[in-house]
Computed example of a mutant assay.
Amino acid sequence: MTTHRTLLPPGWPRPKGYSNGISARGRLLFTGGVVGWDEEEKFVSGDLAGQFRQVLVNTLAILAEGGAGPEHVVRMTWYVTSVADYRDGLAKIGAAWRELMGKNFPTMAVVEVAALVEPEARIEIETTAVVPEL
């Protein structure tokens, strides 16, 4: 069951890889800032694109605990330590997205920050999902 509707004003071009706005109804789930380490808190990769894939794996595991899947994600805020690394890794980031998130394109913001709390982290993502009320 769809829990949200993409908002695209008439005449606007379709954004690539994200949505400008979403209207949603249902039960809200939120994640804190999720980084690219494994269940033992060891980073699986030293680069942003490699950590991104693990962030998605971790995020989906957290959301599954609340009964949500990738199709329920409506908002993500990405904090990256280097926009240049983000741009350089777009092919790998896109491949990981397609593999794990499919064709769901939530609203997103990517923000470059000076540092993250975990010194090895190159990316941290906060996520909001909306699941149907039963």
Score class of each variant (00 low, 15 high):
Val110Gln: 03
Val83Asp: 06
Ala84Ile: 15
Arg98Pro: 04
Gly66Thr: 09
Thr128Ala: 12
Val113Tyr: 01
Lys92Leu: 09
Ser23Ala: 15
Gly94Ile: 07
Val74Tyr: 05
Thr6Gln: 11
Thr107Leu: 10
Gly66Ile: 09
Pro106Ala: 03
Met101Gln: 10
Ile93His: 02
Leu28Gln: 02
Gly94Arg: 13
Ala91Thr: 14
Pro106Met: 03
Arg98His: 12
Trp78Ala: 11
Ile93Phe: 00
Leu28Met: 10
Pro10Asn: 06
Ala24Ile: 02
Lys42Glu: 13
Ala121Leu: 11
Ile125Ser: 06
Arg5Cys: 00
Ala64Ile: 02
Val35His: 12
Val34Ser: 06
Thr6Ser: 08
Val110Tyr: 02
Leu29Trp: 01
Gly67Asp: 09
Glu133His: 10
Val83Tyr: 10
Leu29Gln: 07
Arg5Pro: 07
Gln51Phe: 14
Val117Ser: 14
Ala68Leu: 04
Pro9Val: 00
Ala64Ser: 01
Gly94Phe: 07
Gly89Val: 13
Gly66Asn: 04
Ser23Arg: 09
Phe105Leu: 03
Glu126His: 14
Ala68Phe: 02
Thr81Asn: 01
Arg25Asn: 07
Glu133Cys: 01
Thr127Ile: 08
Leu56Asn: 06
Glu120Ile: 03
Leu8Met: 10
Thr77Ala: 14
Gly33Phe: 05
Ser45Phe: 05
Tyr18Val: 09
Met108Val: 13
Ala96Arg: 07
Phe52Leu: 05
Phe105Cys: 03
Ile125Tyr: 09
Glu118Thr: 02
Pro132Arg: 13
His72Trp: 05
Leu63Ile: 06
Val80Ala: 08
Val55Asn: 02
Arg14Pro: 04
Gly26Val: 12
Ala129Asn: 10
Ser23Trp: 00
Asp88Ile: 05
Tyr18Phe: 15
Trp97Asn: 14
Gly33Asn: 10
Arg75Gln: 13
Val73Ile: 15
Glu118Arg: 14
Ala129Asp: 09
Ile93Cys: 01
Ser82Met: 10
Met108Asn: 10
Ser23Cys: 07
Val110His: 03
Pro106His: 05
Leu29His: 11
Ala114Asp: 14
Leu8Ser: 05
Phe43Tyr: 15
Gly46Ile: 08
Ala95His: 11
Lys92Thr: 03
Ile22Gln: 08
Glu120Arg: 15
Val131Asn: 03
Leu7Met: 04
Tyr18Pro: 04
Gly89Lys: 12
